[in-house]
């Protein structure tokens, strides 16, 4: 095993085993050894999170473990991200994300946010219990590529329909993702959204699948 492979394996393991300190140490080691930080993020941290997704899908890990894995991932990401070289000519993708008004839960939202952070997007996190007009205002302001909203409870998800209508009217190209326990693909279609994640659980699976796609993209496996 090369030194690079060894460090990437450490990063991956630290995420899977939710060892925050180990993850930070491995991230620093990656920088010290001159490993491309983007490779460390995608082949170390993101690869670890993909494995977490498998453990979650097979009922080995549940949400508490996944949250701790995410904390470990961020410890590494915080160290690696400042060193990732940006292509100044390429426009950076951006997302506006938040939990809808009436919803004070943000676990699902934060897990999806992690996926965008890993991918290096500009993330505008509006937090939770966000009034509808704030989503619209921010999206129109920053003209984000994606607007991602979550509502954990049935009782709050009707608000998403209004936001989608307002954003799509002014900015039809914006992709809209919905997530949250009560949202189904039917509801997402009904509201005119472009994607969905069914629950905090599915947000994990969906988010991780998206990370997987990003990694394939990075390697040139998909165009």
């Amino acid at each position: 095993m090369s030194k690079q492979e060894e460090i990437l394996a450490k990063l991956k393991e630290a995420v899977v085993e939710y060892e925050e300190d180990d993850c930070a140490a491995a991230a620093q080691e990656a920088l010290d050894e001159g490993i491309d930080p983007m490779v460390a993020v995608m082949e170390g941290l993101a690869a670890g999170m993909e494995e977490v997704g498998v453990l979650f899908d097979t009922n080995e890990y549940f949400v508490p473990e996944v949250l701790m894995c995410a904390d470990a991932l961020y410890k590494g990401l915080d160290i690696l991200r400042p060193h990732i070289k940006l292509d100044i000519d390429a426009p950076k993708a951006s997302v506006v994300i938040g939990s809808i008004q009436g919803d004070v839960h943000d676990i699902g939202k934060n897990l999806v946010k992690m996926m965008f952070d890993v991918a290096g997007w500009d993330v505008y996190d509006l937090g939770r219990d966000v009034p509808l007009e704030e989503f619209v205002k921010k999206q129109l302001d920053v003209k984000s590529d994606v607007l991602a909203m979550s509502a954990m409870m049935t009782t709050t998800m009707m608000g998403m329909k209004k936001v989608i209508a307002m954003v799509k009217e002014k900015n039809p190209d914006c992709l809209i993702m919905l997530g949250g326990a009560p949202v189904t693909r039917d509801v997402a279609n009904l509201f005119g959204a472009d994607g969905y994640a069914e629950s905090a659980g599915n947000a994990v699976s969906e988010g991780i699948k998206m990370i997987g796609r990003l990694r394939e993209f990075q390697k040139g496996d998909i165009k």
């Binding site: 008004q101 009436g102 004070v104 219990d129 409870m153 009782t155 709050t156 009707m158 608000g159």
Partner: peptide, 18 residues
Amino acid sequence: ISLYEDTEGIIYPTVPNK
């Protein structure tokens, strides 16, 4: 408590300061 009294539609009260 957030009651959303000025908001149109149906929003259940929530806890703002856990």
